[in-house]
Simulated assay, not measured.
Amino acid sequence: MTNIGFGIDVGGSGIKGARVDLDSGEFIGDRIKILTPQPATPDAVADTIKEILSRAEWDGPVGITLPSVVREQRALSAANIDDAWIGTDLQALFAQHLGAEREVAVLNDADAAGLAEAQFGNPKAREGAVILLTLGTGIGSAYLIDGTLCPNTELGHLIVDGKEAEHLASSAAKDREELSYTKWAKRVTKVLREYERLFWPSLFIVGGGISRKADKWVPKLNIDTPVVPAELRNRAGIVGAAMAAQQQLRP
């Protein structure tokens, strides 16, 4: 087995990494998880990533996801990590902590999930315009055209009914306002209808922890576009990161 990569998914509460079989999208061995340092500054997170790579005894290329807009390998936003990330030169940061000789690819976490789902999830994710949404603390998004990523869409910040979409319809909003699945699905419908109006996708893929209960709310959505739950679930970020490193994808 030679087509092996390594991906790391940085979240607000945990940083996770694993070897990935890039032919199947499956993990090789156990996933390693370390709690995200607080505050989650660039140096502290980079040191945690170094610790994961050390534990895994991995010295090859590595892909890293961040809850940030990433353009030209510079972080332009910071969600659930320290604001010190904004403006950080990511290649310089990780060269300092992981070694200048190591190849590193950094991308947005939802974009990584979209790459993984298109490659290893529903085959229809590679056909036409597809929007993947991760419903959690906010709404992350990945926009794919025939399986090719258009990075940094940030559709969760689109204004719907006078609010940012993620303030209206994230799973955190459901929990915060103690909404039933029926009431929450009405809000998700409003958001998806706006995405339909603007992008005319052929498919929505919904991820995030709440996708595990897709049977409780996806049938309640009232839109024209098919909606399917993500298939890779919590593997998607790590798998997409490893793919980015393999493909030398650096938004």
Rank of each mutant, 00 (worst) to 15 (best):
I139R: 01
I139N: 04
I139H: 06
I139Y: 01
I139K: 01
I139C: 03
G140K: 00
G140W: 06
G140H: 01
S141P: 02
S141Q: 04
S141R: 03
S141H: 07
S141E: 07
A142D: 11
A142F: 05
A142S: 15
A142I: 04
A142Y: 05
Y143R: 09
Y143P: 00
L144W: 13
L144M: 13
L144Y: 13
L144N: 06
L144R: 06
I145N: 12
I145D: 12
I145V: 12
D146N: 15
D146T: 01
D146C: 08
G147M: 08
G147A: 10
G147N: 06
G147I: 00
G147H: 04
G147V: 00
T148P: 00
T148Y: 13
T148G: 07
L149H: 08
L149K: 01
L149I: 11
L149V: 08
C150L: 11
C150R: 13
C150T: 14
C150Q: 14
P151S: 10
P151Y: 04
P151M: 06
N152Y: 09
N152C: 08
N152E: 11
N152W: 06
T153E: 00
T153F: 09
E154W: 02
E154H: 06
E154K: 01
E154G: 07
E154M: 05
L155R: 00
L155S: 02
L155D: 03
L155W: 03
G156Y: 08
G156M: 03
G156Q: 03
H157S: 12
H157K: 07
H157W: 11
L158Q: 14
L158G: 10
L158V: 13
L158Y: 13
L158A: 14
L158H: 11
L158I: 12
I159V: 15
I159A: 13
I159T: 14
V160D: 12
V160H: 07
V160N: 12
D161N: 15
D161F: 00
D161I: 04
D161T: 10
D161Q: 15
D161E: 15
G162T: 08
G162F: 04
G162E: 13
G162K: 07
G162V: 02
K163N: 15
K163R: 15
K163G: 05
K163P: 02
K163S: 14
K163C: 08
K163A: 14
E164I: 02
E164Q: 14
E164C: 10
E164K: 04
A165K: 03
A165Y: 09
A165Q: 06
A165F: 02
A165S: 15
E166Y: 13
E166H: 13
E166N: 11
H167V: 01
L168W: 11
L168Q: 10
A169Q: 07
A169L: 04
A169N: 13
S170K: 05
S170A: 12
S170L: 04
S170W: 09
S170M: 04
S170Y: 10
